[in-house]
């Protein structure tokens, strides 16, 4: 998977370097103008295989956990995923459990999947336990929350200074009457659950020897970067709207 992508990117870089060289030659204070025709001709010279594009899509579906879509896409395009689709289901179950606030359930599922994940990721384990504490506080179980913090989280804080600071921040939730409107209130936000869920998701992917981030977004980031670099040197047909990828005429 990584091979085909890097060759595509290499090609892109190569093109970029060519353009830069031309620009340097032509640069005399003013920016060069590249017309739509010239630009499209250059783009057409870059050959990208359909299968590579399909792999990129499959990589996105698998990494993000769209198991049904991945299955359909596999049948339609004949693209084989680089991971057993069944493992996606397990991973999604864990992710969903965290998103719903069933953290203990999520922990047990991760441990069934691979006991090493939480044993060798102290930070992830702490964040899951912290999320458990947040859920207890959310449900108004103050005594249980305190007991849990003392029993399970305090020892982790002793092992690691930054955990201790995070723990203090979390326990601070108990000090406010109106938690929705306090300085650490964001911990109760749904975004905190999503953050924890995506951290678990990434750890499971890594344990399955899989990239934790899909490749598509980073390619888009590279596109934006390349355009920004080019902006300083030339006027050319730019992609402004990533969702349509329409080439805008160069404005001079």
């Amino acid at each position: 998977m990584s091979l085909f992508l890097s060759s595509t990117i290499d090609q892109a870089y190569h093109q970029l370097a060519e353009i830069e060289a031309e620009l340097k030659a032509a640069m005399a204070g003013s920016k060069k103008v590249i017309t739509r025709e010239e630009w499209e001709k250059k783009l057409n010279d870059v050959k990208i295989k359909k299968e590579d594009m399909n792999k990129l899509v499959m990589n996105f579906l698998v990494t993000e956990g769209y198991v049904d879509a991945a299955e359909k896409f596999r049948k339609e395009s004949g693209t084989e995923p680089d991971i057993d689709l069944a493992t996606i289901t397990d991973r999604m179950a864990v992710k969903k459990a965290v998103q719903c606030g069933n953290v203990e359930d999520a922990i047990e599922k991760v441990n069934d999947l691979n006991p090493e994940i939480l044993d060798t990721n102290p930070q992830l384990f702490f964040h899951l336990q912290q999320q458990r504490l947040i859920e207890l506080i959310r449900n108004g179980k103050v005594e249980e929350a305190l007991e849990f913090a003392q029993e399970e989280l305090a020892p982790r804080g002793e092992e690691n200074q930054s955990f201790l600071e995070e723990l203090e921040r979390t326990v601070a939730l108990l000090a406010f009457e109106d938690v929705s409107n306090c300085p650490v209130g964001e911990l109760l936000d749904i975004s905190q659950r999503l953050k924890t869920a995506s951290e678990v998701n990434a750890a499971i992917l890594t344990s399955q020897s899989h990239e934790k981030d899909p490749k598509l977004p980073s390619l888009l980031k590279m596109l934006i970067w390349a355009q920004n670099q080019l902006d300083e040197k030339a006027h050319y047909p730019r992609i402004n709207d990533l969702s349509t990828a329409r080439l805008e005429d160069p404005s001079v």
Partner: peptide
Amino acid sequence: MPTSASASASASSTTA
């Protein structure tokens, strides 16, 4: 909530 119920059970059971 079933989760918090079981969490509470284990949290309280660990003290003794």
